[in-house]
């Protein structure tokens, strides 16, 4: 007998959210810079405790969206509610319930980590309630982001990855109900990225903070988030868990194996019966069996390509960065068994 791990819930991450009010909701959100429409009617909902990744090509309006939600940018049109409040009207009490981590902070270089967290934490103390105490305990927060050893270091001395984890700690210092992360791992080495993902997972396990992050990194989105929104051409073009999105694009799986020293790749609607038949027929002749559903990368590329081919005349956004990383689907040589 083979021991089986507990089965995963079929649609995990896509749990029925109808019962609760969304903590973030936009309807028909539009943003126009001069002649360029960056957002053309974004509708999105984020529910309490979710970790949602906002994906999209450069210039798709990810940063603009997140800045509007943070109350840092005035929108051109549409309805926006963050924690029940229009961000443009958000007061300091509303601000105290948000945590913000942006792309390029280098501030307070002369301060020590512990000092700065304690100092910034004091701003939140007056918004503390018996049910939701603020701010975070400084030592606990430092250990959450894995900077205990550096707690007394000057901030300017931190490495890029450490600095970013400090930024997250600062974002969390007021124990926010929503944490916004704008491309948190750009420029990280793999180890720093791993550490950072650890921090976010620990945080989402606690379940008290809703996280909305933007990223270019599909693996990151897949690893961290319970739900993915793909933004292209100023609209949300896909919304769902990584698994649902994969199904939406293609229900086919890829089966790879080798037989008699030759490698085969086969694409099948029902991978399970295919494999059953394959093994029934050849038994021990089959080696290196691998079954793979469409990866998020395939899904993403397909969705964005489909979208862009429909909008060939799309004007590039003002924020388009010409040197941005581009991702291509991995080339696969098709061999039919």
């Amino acid at each position: 007998m083979v021991a089986l791990a507990a089965p995963l819930p079929a649609e995990y991450g896509d749990a029925d959210q109808n019962g609760s009010e969304p903590v973030i909701k936009t309807t028909g959100l539009r943003m126009r810079y001069g002649p360029v429409d960056v957002l053309r009617g974004v509708n999105l909902c984020v529910y309490r405790g979710e970790v949602v990744a906002l994906l999209g090509p450069n210039g798709a309006g990810k940063t603009t969206t997140i800045e509007i939600l943070e109350g840092f940018r005035k929108r051109s049109a549409g309805e926006v509610r963050v924690l029940g409040t229009d961000p443009e009207q958000g007061d300091e009490g509303w601000r105290a319930r948000l945590g913000i981590v942006l792309q390029s902070w280098r501030d307070h270089g002369k301060w020590r980590i512990g000092e700065l967290l304690a100092h910034l934490g004091r701003y939140y103390a007056s918004y503390s309630t018996p049910e939701h105490t603020r701010p975070y305990n400084t030592d606990e927060l430092i250990s959450l982001v894995g900077l205990t050893k550096q707690a007394n270091d000057k901030i300017a001395k931190l490495s890029g990855g450490q600095r970013r984890r400090l930024d997250v700690a600062i974002g969390l210092v007021g124990r926010p109900e929503i944490l916004f992360l704008d491309e948190p791992t750009v420029g990280f080495d793999p180890q720093a990225r791993q550490d950072f993902h650890g921090v976010l997972r620990r945080l989402s396990d606690r379940g008290e903070t809703t996280i909305l992050l933007t990223t270019h990194d599909l693996n990151e989105a897949e690893k961290l988030s319970s739900r993915i929104l793909i933004l292209a051409g100023g609209r949300v073009v896909a919304d769902g868990s990584p698994v649902t999105l994969a199904r939406q694009v293609s229900s086919r799986s890829e089966i790879r194996f080798s037989k008699d020293g030759l490698h085969y790749v086969h694409s099948a609607e029902d991978a399970t019966s295919y494999v059953r038949a394959l093994l029934g027929q050849y038994g021990r002749g089959i080696h290196n069996l691998e079954v793979r559903r469409a990866s998020l990368e395939d899904v993403y590329t397909k969705i964005v390509q489909e979208f862009e081919s429909r909008n060939v005349k799309r004007t590039p956004g003002r924020h388009a960065r010409p040197n941005g990383r581009r991702r291509h689907a991995k080339p696969v040589t098709k061999v039919t068994a």
């Binding site: 942006l102 390029s104 902070w105 280098r106 501030d107 910034l120 701003y123 007021g174």
Partner: peptide, 19 residues
Amino acid sequence: DREDGTLLRAKATPNGMLG
């Protein structure tokens, strides 16, 4: 402070700008 983000940090903090 605008260049290095100190001011933005203040803006992201409740009453931070005043402080």
